[in-house]
Design a protein around this nucleic acid. Structure first.
Lengths: 304, 304
DNA sequence: TGAACTCTTTAGACTAGCTACATGGACGTG
DNA sequence: CACGTCCATGTAGCTAGTCTAAAGAGTTCA
C-alpha cells in the first residue's frame, strides 16, 4: 500500500477530477489514472466510478481518502519535527487573502519572517469565493465570517482564529451622528446606505439592523470594494458598515467611525488550512506570525 | 520524504543494527544503508552515527523514528479500513506465547478464526524473555506480569489486557491443608516449596508470603516448567504456586488447588503489540478472539 | 453530427532501488 | 601483533515501477 497513491485519491476527493489532480501534482492525467487503477486493484474493491465524462469516488473511496488525510498529517508532523531539529522553516508558503485582511496583516507579517521562508500571497474577492475550496490550492486561506456562523466547520479543515474585528458605522465628517459616542439601530433609520454586494457577509448585520429598527434601510449602491465604499461615504452619498481596523486604507482619517450597539456587529478573521499542511513548520510559523500581527493591530486600536 | 525510508529508520531503532533491519525486511544490508543515507541527506542532519562496528541513532534520529511510528499507525488504520470494506481479515498473523497461556487460549482461538486468516504461533520460555523485544518479530506477544506491575508500560507499545488469572497453592491429594476452603500465609510456614527459576514473576508472591508469615520459606527445587512442578507436587515432594486455569495440563485433576488469601496472588495476561501492527484488521480480529476465549475460560472456572 | 472535453489504454523511456561483490574500520584471539 | 570475523558502506549493473506521449473511447453540448 503506497502513500503516494493514497495522496492521489485524496486529491481526487478534493478536486473532483483526474485532470485537476494531474495539474495540481505536475503529472499527466494518464499517470494519475494508472496509479488510481493500481490502488483500486490493491484494495480489491471499486474506489471510483464514472459519472458522465468525469469520475467520482465511491463510498469506500471517500472513506479511504479520509483516512489518507490522517496519513498525510502524521507525515507532515514528521517532516515538521525534523525541520524543528534544524530550526529552519524551509520552503515556500502560499496564502490567499481577501483584500482588507491582507492590507491589515500581511505587511507586518512579512517583516516578521526570516529570509529563508518565502511567503507567496494572492488575493481573491470574498463575495464570490468559497473559502474552503481555496485550501486545495493555497497553504493558508484567510477567511472571514460573522461571529458564530462558521460555514466551514466540519469539513475536516484546520481553523485557526486570528482576530475579531468590530464592524462600525462609517459616516462622513459633519454628519449629524458624527459627534455621538455610539449609534444604535433606531438612529440609522432614514439614512441612505452604501451596501455590499449580495452574498457578502456584512449583509446579515444590515438585516439585523432592519429587524431591530423595525423598518427597511434604503440601499443606494452595492459595492464589494471597501475603498470604493469609503469614497462614497466621504463624498456624503451615504453611510456604510466599515471594518474598524481596516478602514482608511484609501484616504486615511476622513471617515468617522461609530461603534454600533444593539446589534452584534463584528467579523471573525480566521486562517483555514488542510490539516496536513497546517502541520508544516513553515506554515505554522506563518500562522503564528499572523496571530501575533493580528494581536498587535488589535492592541494598537484599543490602547489609545 | 518517503515512508519506506522512515520505516527503515524505525526498524533500526527497534533492532539496533543495519544487518538486523536488512534481515527483517528481506533486503541486503547495502540497500538499507543506502536508503538511510538518502534519508539523512534529505533531513539535512545526521540521524545515525557509528559506534564501534555498529550504528546507533542520534537524538534526532530517535525522535524521527518515533514519529515514524505515527505514520505507520495511520497507514495501518487506512489498510484496516479497506479490509473492513471487504470484511475480510487478510493475511497471516504471528504470535508468541509463554507455554501456559498458549495451552489455555490458543486451541479455542484458532477454532474461532476463519479459514482465510492464518495464525502462526510460537512459544518462548517466559523466564528468559524480554517480552517487548519480541514485538519486533511477532505481531502479537502474549505476556504476563503481576497485577499492577507493568514492566513494559511507556515503551510505546499497545497493551491489551486479556485476563487476570489467580495463582493458587497447589497441594498433593491427602495433604493436611487439602480439605480447607482457602489458605493464608501463616498456614504455609514449614511447608517445602517447589519454587520457580530466579527472575520468574511468581517469585514476588513467594516473597510476599514470607513477609506476611514472618519467616522464610524453604525452597527445595527451582523449575520453570509448570507440568514439571506439578509432577513434583503430585509426588508429595512439596507444594507450589500454580496458575488456577492452567493447572492440570499434564495430569488433570491430581493437584488440589487452594485459593491464597492475605496476599495478592494473581497474574495479568496481556497482549503486547507494536501500535501499527495492532491496527491491522487481521491482528485486531485475533486479539478479539483472544479476549473472547479468555473470558470463556474465566467463565468456565467461576460458574461451577 | 461533429467539436470539445474527460478518462483510459498502450508503448516506450527513464529512474529509483535492489543485488552482488568489493572495500574499509573495529573487535577479539591465538 | 597479525589474522579472521563482523559490520557498515561504497560501486556497478539490472529490474521494476512510474512517468510521458499519443491514440482511443465515451459523454456532453451546439
Amino acid at each position: 500500500m503506497d502513500v503516494q497513491r493514497l495522496e492521489l485519491l485524496r486529491e481526487l476527493a478534493d478536486r473532483g477530477s483526474v485532470t485537476a489532480v494531474a495539474l495540481a501534482t505536475h503529472r499527466t492525467p494518464s499517470a494519475v489514472s494508472q496509479q488510481l487503477k493500481v490502488l483500486e486493484r490493491e484494495a480489491g474493491l471499486p474506489l471510483t466510478q464514472r459519472q458522465g465524462r468525469g469520475l467520482v469516488l465511491t463510498d469506500a473511496g471517500r472513506a479511504l481518502a479520509r483516512s489518507a488525510t490522517d496519513v498525510a498529517v502524521s507525515l507532515a508532523k514528521a517532516t515538521a519535527l525534523w525541520d524543528e531539529f534544524r530550526n529552519h522553516a524551509s520552503g515556500e508558503v502560499s496564502l490567499v487573502t481577501f483584500p482588507t485582511a491582507g492590507q491589515m496583516l500581511l505587511p507586518g507579517v512579512i517583516k516578521q519572517l526570516g529570509a529563508d521562508l518565502v511567503l507567496n500571497c494572492a488575493d481573491e474577492d470574498p463575495e464570490l469565493s468559497d473559502f474552503p475550496a481555496f485550501t486545495a490550492e493555497y497553504d493558508i486561506v484567510l477567511a472571514h465570517s460573522m461571529s458564530g456562523q462558521l460555514s466551514w466547520a466540519g469539513r475536516g479543515l484546520s481553523v485557526v482564529p486570528l482576530m475579531t474585528e468590530p464592524l462600525d458605522v462609517g459616516l462622513p465628517v459633519g454628519h449629524p451622528l458624527a459627534d455621538r459616542a455610539w449609534v444604535g439601530p433606531r438612529d440609522l433609520v432614514g439614512e441612505t446606505w452604501i451596501g455590499v454586494t449580495d452574498g457578502y457577509p456584512f449583509e446579515r448585520i444590515l438585516h439585523a439592523i432592519e429587524q431591530e429598527a423595525g423598518s427597511r434601510l434604503s440601499m443606494s449602491q452595492r459595492f464589494a470594494d471597501l475603498a470604493l465604499i469609503e469614497s462614497f461615504v466621504i463624498a456624503g452619498l451615504g453611510i456604510a458598515l466599515v471594518p474598524r481596523y481596516t478602514s482608511g486604507g484609501g484616504q486615511p482619517g476622513r471617515v468617522v467611525l461609530k461603534p454600533l450597539r444593539g446589534v452584534e456587529s463584528e467579523r471573525q478573521i480566521v486562517a483555514l488550512m488542510r490539516p496536513d499542511r497546517a502541520e508544516r513548520l513553515a506554515v505554522r510559523t506563518v500562522v503564528e506570525a499572523l496571530r501575533a500581527e493580528a494581536a498587535r493591530v488589535q492592541q494598537a486600536h484599543t490602547a489609545p
